[in-house]
Design a protein around this nucleic acid. Sequence first.
RNA 1: CGGGGCGUAGCGCAGCCUGGUAGCGCACACGGUUCGGGACCGUGGGGUCGAAGGUUCAAAUCCUUUCGCCCCGACCA
Length: 580
Amino acid sequence: MRYSRLLAPTIKETPAEAEVVSHKLMLRAGMIRKVAAGIYTYLPLGLRVIQKVSQIVREEMNGAGAQEILMPVVVPAELWRESGRWDLYGKELLRLKDRHDRDFCFGPTHEEVVTDVVRKEVRSYRQLPVNLYQIQTKFRDERRPRFGLMRGREFIMKDAYSFHRDEADAEREYGVMVETYKRIFARCGLTFRAVEADTGAIGGSFSHEFMVLAETGEDEIASCNSCDYAANVEKAESRHHGLPVGWGAAASASPGEPSREAARPVESVPTPGKKSVEEVSGLLGVDPRRLIKTLIVVADGAPAAVLIRGDHDLNEVKLSRALGCQAVALADAAVTERVTGAPVGFAGPVGLSGVRIVADRLVEGMVNAVAGGNAADTHLVNVNPGRDFAVSLYADLNRVRAGDRCPRCESGALRIDRGIEVGHVFKLGAKYSEAMGATFLDEDGKERPFVMGCYGIGVGRTAAAAIEQNNDADGIVWPLPLAPFSVLVLPLNVRHEASRTAAEDIYRGLLGGGVEAAIDDRDERAGVKFKDADLIGIPLRVVVGEKGLAEGMVEIKERRTGTVHRVPRDEAIPRVVSMI
RNA sequence: CGGGGCGUAGCGCAGCCUGGUAGCGCACACGGUUCGGGACCGUGGGGUCGAAGGUUCAAAUCCUUUCGCCCCGACCA
């Protein structure tokens, strides 16, 4: 590619709309341009990167035995009604009508379509398993698109769906996909982790997310420093031993003996103006672990009280899963006061009526705890679960923190990192096949629903994540496999005949050798070309200058390290080839 | 969806409070000088001030409505 013909409109100033580095740099490097909120045009450089990611995905998926197909973007509502998701999916599903007033949607995911294909075309267990994937533009009408390609409304995704005769084979394929994904992200040159994830609205039995580690990630992931346990914080557990604090020095993360402390009678104590755990524990001189924190929440419209040990935080995702409800939110002051009969800050489980009380499993063993008194400026001490109040449900509701003990191994502690979700694999089971009557005949001639799996990769998001992880003050530092070009030949002065000719020769030689090369043949000052080259982030740069050329030399510079290799011009091509 | 903010040249912004001929930097075009890290000088083109309505002799500026975009939160295969 000749830069003089390339539409790569780089900009010096950062557009105001960009918040994260990948978005800023994609705009500045002339890779993408916004058309509407969360909707972008991919300019030539951006598209080349997308194609690089796609090609890696394609090769690895094909290598794993999957087959590429391409499904429609516009999907008739009937299919979504069959699965029940037409009514469940909500506003993220972009719905439209055709000229006959029939309902359609713009596919945000394609379980229904692919299940429809397979139920029509696959009849026998002999035809299984089958894994079909596509790389396609999706649309989800996100409430709040942001961060450029990281969370767009329209985005390119690889989605794969596998169909199996039984659970065991689905699990086998799941394992194959996990390994395939690891290869894909490794080939992309990314630092990532596969973590256990919440299955969310799509349902299914278990799932893993693939997280590219980056400060700006929207997700938090907990991982063990000793074993290979890693999970999204939404789902992560820590080791409790099911105990309260073993009174004395033991911390939550340490094993302890069950408390032998004898239960004492409840007493009311004045705690004027002391609302937070810190204030109350400070006033009473007790360890925060001895407090029961009572949160009033609204779960699918109904208020409930949630009990958490004082030093812990509520994990709302775990709570909503435990309650089996769709939406959980902290209640506002009015609801809290109505439920507890007290100002915010003095809620407690004792004497609460009319609301469900759910508690973290750690609360169950607490003895002589401190809790709100459901009256202004009042707390209760020596509160004991079971004796003083009833809990309708105990569950793990604790949000893990760095330093918590690993739930899987004896010695490990958890650390928390931020990550960008670039891939997600699910075991779906028969949810869609049953809903849509997608069945096959097994060896016994018995009709059975397909057992399914689904596997997604955000292609554009992967490119963005690569930038989040690979950039410096001058711009993008592409990992070679994702770079729009491997090498840029840069004649310093195209009006200098010998430089231009030498650069053209090298450029053509590289192309002839199958190297993805570009040449900056613009009549621009050297500084401008250098700045653009750094911004765009092409891994290798061959600089052809008048002085060097006089000595028969050119320079090869590595974008990532800044290392410059001075080589004879005739050796430039083999040197470049050896470096990529 | 709740809260906050912003829409003025392609981009980044000032002007608005206190109404009176629409500005700056970058980018762009032309001329000259320059030429290994986003050059300099000069000249020039480019604006329905997001849109609609209202107040006023007069609206980018004040009022109302509306659309778009951004941020925080909630939410999110």
